[in-house]
Design a protein around this nucleic acid. Structure first.
Lengths: 188, 188
DNA sequence: TGTGATACATGATGTCGATCATGTTTATGA
DNA sequence: TCATAAACATGATCGACATCATGTATCACA
């Protein structure tokens, strides 16, 4: 039952996407290789033709998630507006990988950590551009502080079993971020 | 091999403390009941005399961690000074449970989530007092936003495999918070 | 168009870990 | 002091899951 080259490429993509969603939804440990393959439309046995181990899949899925999230440059504020929403909070499987997996990612393989670190660098650079230009140390500080606040707020909100409290965490954090950076649009 | 009442109480405490440390260090899934019991100085079989299941232990350990972290009221800035340190970053097993387990806690039992929610309320109240009094909506916003930023920064820093970047995340987030919280000591 | 290698399905294997069963010791209340 | 039951150790059990082994169909290149 061999399969064409494009099929192979598409299968690999399917596996990575299924893994990315399942990991974000349930965490690395609670997802089995068989589940990922099933979600990708395959059976468990073929898995090791694509990846050497589950750890390798984790690293590849994180790398995949981390490289292409924001297509266009946006201002920090616009980004925060989209990030700190009830929709994003509800869509764990399709949302920010750090907010979904952050505390676990640091305990994974060096390759997985490297992917997350790369993502962090990219994100700081992107948000820094959106916060008032390049050579500005203040822009970098705003990018880092705001990004930390966004990630933390989403994690706290998702942790809460009280929807009103969760909602409040998102809103107040949004306001907190906008408190002093808000004036420079910094459009690129 | 029966044991005195105080011994029983102390054993329960030992189990909870061992669980709290191990969970924070490795995550819920990577810690076995047998490991917890061994760290508490007991064998695995006795576990079910104390807790009905591993899930129950998780909830109890979180509840235990969340209730008594900050003995005295402190200002928001002083709290951030202690929180955003390399020492705290290195001491995952003894540090903030949200920064260690946040993304996983939302996927645990309702009891576990309830414990974390209680902890969040307590923390907002504590930091709100330390940010300029009670009936002040701005204080609450500062507490929530700063807490989100602290948690997020610690998670990002721990995720990073580059110590310099991690250090920078902590420092810039500290400055970011200082910028928005202002100078009011708000001592209680 | 034949033929070999490849991608996959099916079906083990082996380990690990949660939970249970049983026996032994000894604190506790009468 | 004695009887009882609690607290725990030891040793199953049982399922879940990562990983491997094998067979088969078919793409791809000659």
């Amino acid at each position: 039952m061999r399969v064409s080259r494009e099929q192979v490429a598409e299968n690999r993509r399917r596996i990575l996407e299924a893994a990315g969603r399942l990991f974000r939804e349930r965490g690395f440990g609670a997802v089995t290789v068989a589940e990922v393959m099933k979600a990708a439309g395959l059976t468990h046995g073929g898995f090791y033709g694509y990846f050497g181990s589950k750890d390798e899949l984790i690293a590849a899925a994180l790398e995949d998630l981390v490289v292409a999230p924001v297509p266009k440059p946006v201002t920090l504020e616009a980004y925060a507006d989209r990030y700190l929403t009830p929709e994003h909070m509800a869509d764990c499987a399709g949302g920010c990988p750090v907010a979904a997996l952050g505390t676990d990612a640091g305990r994974q393989s060096p390759q997985a950590r490297a992917a997350m670190t790369e993502g962090l660098r990219l994100q700081i650079a992107r948000l820094g551009e959106g916060a008032g230009g390049e050579r500005n140390a203040t822009a970098r500080q705003a990018a880092i502080g705001s990004w930390a606040a966004m990630v933390g707020a989403m994690i706290l909100a998702r942790m809460s079993d009280d929807p009103a409290l969760a909602q409040q965490v998102l809103q107040e954090t949004r306001a907190f971020i906008g408190q002093r950076v808000g004036d420079e649009p910094g459009e690129i």
